[in-house]
């Protein structure tokens, strides 16, 4: 078994660990981004073919059958392309929420925000 899958999984776990232990909003956003990168890499790895060529038809491989036997799987790539762009819009939304919280409470620290919100509710 190749170690590549294991490394991608370790990258995923680094993100999960950060998400569980950090209390700073920016650190949480970074953890989510790391998890996204790991998942995208895993999906593209699943479609890789040893010694394959990019799924773009060129004059070097005019025969469709020969091309189909050598090209890597284009399907995960298309879906991961969608996922990368959605990841960016997710990040923009998270940054928006964090900035708004910073303007209200003056900190990115979740514990401090919670404390301030509780005092306010009293």
């Amino acid at each position: 078994m190749s170690p590549v899958y294991l490394l991608v999984f370790v990258l995923f776990l680094v993100g999960v660990f950060g998400l569980l232990t950090r209390r700073n909003l920016i650190k949480l956003i970074i953890s989510v981004a790391v998890i996204e990168a790991a998942v995208n890499l895993f999906l593209v790895l699943a479609g890789y073919r040893q010694g394959g060529i990019a799924p773009i038809m060129t004059e070097q491989h005019p025969e469709v059958e020969a091309f189909a036997a050598r090209a890597v799987d284009p399907f995960p790539q298309a879906m991961v392309l969608t996922s990368i762009v959605i990841g960016l819009s997710l990040l923009a939304l998270m940054v928006g929420i964090s900035l708004r919280l910073y303007h209200i409470y003056g900190t990115y620290d979740l514990d401090e925000i919670r404390r301030a919100a509780r005092e306010e509710g009293r």
Binding site: M1, Y5, F9, L45, A46, Y48, R49, G52, D73
Partner: peptide
């Protein structure tokens, strides 16, 4: 992990 397809052999 051992049940995953091997690297370089797409499904």
């Amino acid at each position: 992990l051992p049940r995953l397809p091997r690297l370089g052999e797409p499904v």
